[in-house]
Design a protein around this nucleic acid. Structure first.
Lengths: 151, 151
DNA sequence: TGACTTTAGTTCTAACACGTACTATAATTT
DNA sequence: AAATTATAGTACGTGTTAGAACTAAAGTCA
């Protein structure tokens, strides 16, 4: 005879929600701290990586790829511009738009920081999961993601 | 004959990292927006839920459960106190500590907001994943989490 | 007891993060 | 062409967020 409670805190799906939040948080703490040792913030790193290997992108595009809203992006770009890592040039085709691209120093930063960070993060994933588990995890995460994107 | 590139952007583990970030983000956007319609921020909601069904906790304990650092917590608690949802009472046993607990209005808020939010979020998980998939996803996430917690 | 060390919580700074309002420009409609 | 609507980026207000410096109170140990 099991106790039949209606405590919303016992919902089975919370057994997925909490690990999702906690795993993401554990990853982010590591990720963030390492990026800071490289002299960038998380948001700045994301922008540099997004701009790497491109000829420059518009705010809208950067915003979509980094999941940073445009309002926030203005400030992030301001700071990267101050650091001399990016430059903003007006767009000929659409005078509302501005093309943001890496400066020479920005490219140098990208080439130094990106591989270093990948190399730092990689072992945590490879130690924790087999290749087969990675495939499974990816598939399940994408299913869940899709559910959050419908409606 | 497959092309052998050394582009760090092609690392297999990124096929897990990106879904992890994107799924968490997709979830959070939904989660956050719903909580705001209930009149709280994410951090405030987390604190209210943590304090619900307790006789009050110390900052340290709230900080551990919500994954919010103590420096941030002070501000969150300040705003909840201003809203009249929590109260801070000195701790007899340890005069460095302060017990934070829900006021009557806070309890009322908890009882209204928590079930409502659970009910809102639940369908996204249950639509996206079968019970068996939830078990698998949970296990893999916890393995990965553990890897990020060692060292 | 008195000098270290740890712990609890606040204060402070820099940087996000979101939503709203705003300006300028572009696209569409009539 | 004029009016309407949509889009691009910025400005601003409120609220996190992490981390370092600070104060007060315990705990430790010699």
């Amino acid at each position: 005879m099991t106790a039949q409670t209606n405590d919303p805190g016992d919902e089975p799906f919370l057994k997925v929600l909490r690990p999702l939040v906690e795993t993401y948080s554990a990853f982010m703490r590591k990720d963030d701290r390492h990026i800071r040792t490289l002299g960038l913030t998380q948001a700045q790193f994301d922008v540099i990586v997004t701009l790497g290997d491109t000829e420059g992108l518009r705010c809208k595009q950067i915003s979509e790829k980094t999941l940073v809203t445009k309002g926030t992006l203005t400030g992030v770009l301001d700071r990267l511009e101050t650091k001399g890592l990016i430059e903003r040039v007006p767009c000929d085709k659409d005078r509302r738009s501005i093309i943001t691209r890496l400066t020479d120093r920005g490219v140098e930063c990208f080439e130094r920081v990106f591989p270093a960070h990948i190399a730092y993060i990689k072992p945590f994933f490879e130690r924790g999961l087999s290749p087969a588990e990675m495939v499974t995890l990816r598939a399940l995460l994408l299913k869940l993601k899709k559910s959050f994107e419908t409606t």
